[in-house]
Amino acid sequence: MKYCLLLAGFFICSVSDAAMNTNGDSAFNYEGGRFEKNGYVLHFTSNAADFSAAVKKRMVDAFFTVYPKLVKDFNKDAAKEVRFKIDTAYHGVAATGGGNVVYDPAWFAKNPGDIDVVTHEVMHIVQAYGRSVGPWWITEGIADYIRFKYGVDNDGGRWKLPEYTDRQKYSDGYRVTARFLAWIEAKAKRGTVKALNTALRDHSYTAESWKQITGRSLDELWSAYSKDPVL
């Protein structure tokens, strides 16, 4: 909402914490708790009195930079209204359920540059697998692959995919699986991540999905990757 006062013959206006206008022309009021742009709404709450205003700003900006792209590319039916909570009672990094993400303020106090935690977590909202038939490591591997591809400042968070070692397994999840997926996209079959994401969400995923999508089984793909893991 916009408020204006007539002072000395001029209208002086300010914008409430409803955030941006529909065209996204004006700046957010980052002190607020509700942000809206182009049909997406983010609610941001915190019970950490000393949570960094600069980190909050970057988290809000990351959401509106990344989330609409992920919805467009991976699930057009994903939630348009999302809630972030900075919660001193939560101890971890972040956790997502439905359209809600809870973050540990202690993590950001120690790692203020790790803004792409947002990218990983909002991909879980887009995934929306429900009672998935797929293993956890694919879910987390896809989310870290998305961080790798869509992240706004992975370098600032000192985050990168690991180099391959023979101690790794495709089922390690997170960054190890993400790097494997990146290799598949680059060297085996482009579009694999989107196809897996769709199969997991509509509960059609089976162990045979890898061969149906890429022409090779999961074990065959990993064997080829382990012999030439260069991205």
Rank of each mutant, 00 (worst) to 15 (best):
L70N: 04
S52I: 09
H43G: 09
C13F: 01
F51L: 09
K57G: 06
F63C: 10
S16I: 07
A95T: 08
M59R: 01
S14Q: 00
I12S: 03
Y90S: 14
D77M: 06
G33Q: 08
A62T: 10
V93Q: 12
F84L: 12
L42C: 15
S16G: 15
A79W: 04
V126N: 07
L70E: 05
N23K: 09
A78E: 13
D87R: 02
T65I: 10
T45P: 02
G99T: 07
A78V: 10
L42A: 15
S16D: 15
K56H: 00
V71M: 00
D17M: 01
A79H: 09
S16F: 05
I115R: 04
G97T: 00
S14F: 00
K57A: 13
N111S: 08
Y3F: 05
M20V: 10
I125S: 06
E36Q: 14
P68T: 04
N21F: 11
V71P: 00
N38S: 15
I125H: 07
F10K: 03
A78Y: 10
D114V: 02
N100S: 11
N47G: 12
W107P: 00
D17H: 05
G113H: 02
A89R: 00
K85D: 13
N38G: 15
V122R: 02
A106T: 02
I86E: 14
V101L: 11
F63G: 11
A18M: 06
E81C: 08
A18G: 13
S16A: 15
A78S: 14
N29V: 14
G9M: 02
A54E: 06
H91Q: 12
G9A: 04
N23V: 06
N38T: 14
F74E: 01
A79Q: 12
A48F: 02
I115Y: 09
V118F: 03
F63T: 10
F11S: 05
H43W: 11
I86V: 15
G99V: 03
A89L: 01
E36Y: 08
V15K: 03
L6Q: 05
E81I: 11
C4G: 04
E31P: 01
R58K: 09
R34K: 11
T88D: 15
T119N: 06
Y3N: 06
G99P: 07
K57T: 07
M123R: 02
C13Y: 01
K69R: 07
V66W: 08
M123T: 06
D104E: 10
V41Q: 12
